[in-house]
Amino acid sequence: MLRFKTKLEADVALREMREQKRQMGTLPTSSPTVEAWFARWLKVQIIPNKRPKTAKTYEQYVRSYIVPALGASTSIAKVTPDTVRRIEAFVLSQGLSPSTATNAYHYAAAGLEFAVREGVLFFNPAKRVDPPRKAVPDLDVFTLTDSVRLLEYLIVNKHPDRALWATYILTGARRSEIAGLEFDRVGEHLDLSWQIQRLEYTHGCGGSCDARRAGNCPKRTIQKPHDYEARPVKGGMHLTRPKSRSGWRIIPLVEPLRTLLLEHKAEAPENEWGLMFPTRHGRYGWLVPPDPDRITHEWPKLRDEVFGPGRRVRLHDIRHAAVDLLYLANVPENLITEIIGHSTRSMTRAYKSRSDEMMLRKGMESLSDLFTPPETARTLEIGS
Results as ranks from 00 to 15, higher is better:
Leu151Phe: 08
Gly206Ala: 05
Asp161Val: 10
Leu370Arg: 15
His320Arg: 08
Pro131Ser: 04
Arg175Tyr: 13
Arg162Asp: 13
Asn103Ala: 05
Glu298Lys: 01
Phe38Asn: 01
Tyr153Leu: 09
Thr102Met: 11
Thr202Gln: 07
Glu188Asp: 07
Val323Trp: 08
Phe114His: 11
Met237Gly: 08
Ala329His: 02
Leu275Ile: 07
Met364Asp: 05
His226Lys: 15
Glu255Asp: 14
Val186Ile: 12
Pro137Arg: 01
Trp194Pro: 01
Leu14Ser: 04
Ile47Lys: 05
Arg312Asn: 11
Trp273Asn: 04
Lys243Trp: 12
Leu192Asn: 10
Met1Gly: 09
Lys352Gln: 14
Glu152His: 04
Leu154Glu: 03
Gly236Ser: 07
Leu262Val: 04
Pro242Leu: 03
Arg349Thr: 10
Val79Asn: 02
Trp194Phe: 12
Arg18Ala: 06
Val91Gly: 00
Ala101Leu: 00
Lys301Ile: 08
Met276Glu: 03
Gly119Val: 00
Arg280Gln: 07
Glu255Tyr: 10
Arg319Asp: 14
Gln195Ala: 13
Pro225Gln: 01
Cys209Asp: 10
Gln195Lys: 14
Tyr284Phe: 15
Lys21Ile: 06
Arg3Thr: 13
Lys265Phe: 01
Leu302Pro: 05
Arg319Gln: 04
Asp184Tyr: 09
Thr143Asp: 07
Asp304His: 06
Arg117Gly: 15
Leu328Trp: 11
Val288Cys: 03
Arg249Met: 01
Val84Phe: 00
Asp130Gly: 00
Thr83His: 11
Tyr351Thr: 07
Lys362His: 13
Asp161Cys: 05
Leu315Tyr: 06
Ala77Val: 04
Arg212Gln: 10
Leu96Trp: 02
Gly119Thr: 14
Thr80Ala: 01
Arg149Met: 10
Leu14Cys: 04
Ser368Gln: 12
Arg128Met: 15
Ala135Asp: 15
Glu263Asp: 11
Tyr351Ile: 06
Thr296Val: 08
Ser64Thr: 13
Pro68Arg: 00
Ser97Ala: 09
Ala108Asn: 01
Lys265Glu: 02
Val116Ile: 01
Leu92Ala: 03
Val62Lys: 00
Tyr65Ser: 00
Val67Cys: 03
Leu302Met: 03
Ala322Val: 04
Arg249Gln: 09
Asp369Tyr: 10
Pro32Thr: 07
Ser193His: 14
Ser64Pro: 07
Ala268Val: 06
Gln94Asp: 09
Lys134His: 04
Lys7Gly: 09
Thr348Glu: 10
Gly274Pro: 02
Ile295Glu: 02
Met276Thr: 02
Lys5Thr: 15
Ala173Arg: 09
